[in-house]
Amino acid sequence: MSDERPEHSTGGVYSVPGQEYTRDDRYLATRITADGRDGFPVEPGRYRLIAARACPWASRVIIVRRLLGLESALSMGLAGPTHDARSWTFDLDPGGRDPVLGIERLQEAFFARDPHYSRGITVPAIVDVRSGAVVTNDFAQMTLDLELEWTAHHRPGAPDLYPERLRDEIDQVNRRVYAKVNNGVYRCGFAGSQDAYDAAYRSLFDGLDWLEERLTGQRYLVGDTITEADVRLFTTLVRFDAVYHGHFKCNRTKLTEMPALWAYARDLFQTPGFGDTVDFAQIKEHYYVVHTDINPTGIVPAGPDLSGWLHPHGREQLGGRPFGDGTPPGPVPDGERVAAAGTPLG
């Protein structure tokens, strides 16, 4: 993939006429580990997470970082919600430059890693501050490594989001949710033919119906506490009515019309570390402005009404302990709060 090809937050290619959407999953797979086996040991202050609140894959990492209390060990820079064909940009920062890396475009950090880099310029990415080069943009591995490799820097009371006894089940659920739901909405939105769209649509709602049934009788996806699986599903659900239902033609049913899923999503949204990271204004601006092939006018819809996210969810009756033996994260650090216009929690 050329770096000049329009690239969106997922790292996948746009639809090709007559074909189904296929994600480009060729990520920089270098890992930051406790033993430094890939040449990048865990070190507080050495790395910077570059994310965007608009992007569901980056939002996973934002949530996990907050739940684990890694803010002081791993700084975070936020790209703006829109970008051009070249790269995500730091237009939210004074002067349009990331204050730590000193760059205007995330592309610069990818080219510092490889001057001939030709794949997607994607978020999330973790950058080595010393060299200014991207270490990894492998979003799926990134959260697992924050959970398993950065344990020495977790806050007291940090939850176990990937408990060993549940890992096989979490992995199985994650694979199904990714194929049918996380990536499924994109397969609908960027389908290149009616047949491709119809197949993606059926698969998506097959996955959502399975989740509706599963979550009718249990509070969380795996076990009785929040895990990696819940984080991965939440970032798709929180965008569903705001963008996927209309913009991506995922319109059989709204999230608000699926009782268990809607209550489950509200339960997580109202849990510290989830809703307080969500910026609906940036989410809508990204999808409706950047995806000009789907929305050529660039008009951002005024709705939906967000007040429902704060309505009581009643999921406590199913039991469960959100943080297990741990505790909720503290207040959002200064400088990382979502603007009041972006979330009903404002």
Rank of each mutant, 00 (worst) to 15 (best):
R187S: 12
T33Q: 10
R46H: 07
W262D: 01
D171K: 04
P94Q: 13
R65I: 08
V243L: 11
D206E: 14
T271E: 03
A79H: 04
V332M: 04
R232G: 11
A196L: 02
L208N: 00
Q270L: 10
G11T: 10
I121H: 01
S87D: 03
R37N: 08
Y14C: 06
L208K: 00
P344E: 00
V243P: 09
E228T: 08
F274V: 00
H247T: 01
N295P: 13
T236V: 07
R176A: 15
L49Y: 07
A302W: 05
T89N: 13
R23V: 08
D198H: 03
A196V: 05
G36L: 01
G223Y: 12
S307K: 06
R165G: 11
R232C: 14
G223L: 14
T277Y: 01
P115D: 10
T89A: 11
P94A: 14
L78F: 11
M258T: 01
M1A: 01
H153D: 06
V42R: 01
F234T: 08
T277E: 03
G308T: 03
E71H: 12
G273A: 10
V134N: 09
P301Q: 02
Y117H: 05
E213N: 08
Q19D: 12
D38K: 07
A341S: 11
P44S: 07
Q19N: 13
V42I: 02
L49P: 02
P159S: 14
Y201K: 06
V222N: 09
L74P: 02
P272M: 07
A79L: 03
P17N: 14
V238S: 10
F139N: 06
E43G: 00
E4I: 10
G36V: 02
F274W: 01
L237N: 05
A79C: 12
W88P: 00
A339L: 15
L28S: 01
P115I: 10
A229E: 04
I299M: 11
T82M: 13
V134H: 10
H313I: 08
P344Q: 00
V177T: 08
E147Y: 14
Y264T: 12
W150C: 04
G223C: 12
G69D: 09
Q218T: 09
Q270H: 03
G320M: 09
T292F: 12
L211H: 00
R119N: 05
L208C: 04
T30A: 08
T292G: 14
R66Q: 06
Y288V: 08
L221P: 05
L28I: 13
F40D: 09
P301I: 01
Q107S: 15
D38W: 14
I63K: 15
T235P: 06
G275E: 05
F240I: 02
A112V: 09
L106P: 04
E316A: 07
A281T: 06
G346C: 13
L78P: 00
P328W: 11
G192I: 04
T89Q: 10
